[in-house]
């Protein structure tokens, strides 16, 4: 049957036409399409890889940021603690200083009071002495108005003087 015997004319035309079409398309058709698509595929592959890398970097950066925030927070609390401590120190110091100062002032006041007291005592003593001298003078003057007493007094003075001489010698 002719269905199962290849026809020479059709063989010839098939080789010719398939050959020509194949030659043209192998040169100007398929390589252009496949090259372009391969180019795009490799670009897509690269982009995906890059996107993955960027994502990892982002995650890294996020972690780093968190770390930095954490650290900053810790530093902040440290600084606050330090500041509180410093405040306390300053207040303590000021108190100590104030106490010192107060004590000094009190001391000074005390010394001055003592000095004043001394001076007042001395004044009082002097005045007392002068008062007693003037009293004694007044007493003497009133006693010396009688003759007897004058003599007696002179004698006593002389005795005393002698006594003093005798004591000296």
């Amino acid at each position: 049957m002719s269905l199962f015997t290849p026809d020479a004319g059709l063989l010839f035309w098939m080789v010719l036409i398939f050959g020509i079409v194949f030659f043209i398309l192998a040169k100007f058709g398929f390589p252009i399409i496949t090259d372009m698509v391969d180019k795009r595929n490799s670009r897509i592959r690269d982009s995906l890889r890059e996107a993955g890398e960027i994502e990892a970097e982002m995650a890294d950066a996020l972690k780093k940021r968190q770390e930095i925030v954490e650290q900053a927070r810790k530093e902040q609390s440290d600084i606050l603690k330090d500041a509180a401590e410093a405040k306390k120190n300053i207040i303590d110091q000021a108190r100590v200083q104030a106490e010192d100062e107060a004590r000094k002032i009190v001391e000074e006041a005390r010394t001055r009071i003592a000095v004043e007291k001394e001076m007042a005592m001395r004044d009082i003593r002097r005045q007392t002495a002068m008062l007693s001298v003037s009293i004694a003078e007044k007493l003497l003057r009133s006693k010396l108005s009688s003759e007897d007493f004058q003599l007696e007094y002179l004698e006593r003075l002389a005795d005393e003087a002698a006594g003093n001489e005798a004591d000296k010698s």
């Binding site: 059709l10 035309w13 098939m14 020509i20 079409v21 043209i24 398309l25 252009i32």
Partner: peptide
């Protein structure tokens, strides 16, 4: 053979147009 020529031409046109797009 005519069918072969027509489909060959059609194939040429289709693929070359595709290549031209690219």
């Amino acid at each position: 053979v005519l069918s072969l020529m027509i489909s060959g031409a059609l194939l040429l046109v289709i693929v070359l147009l595709t290549a031209r797009w690219y």
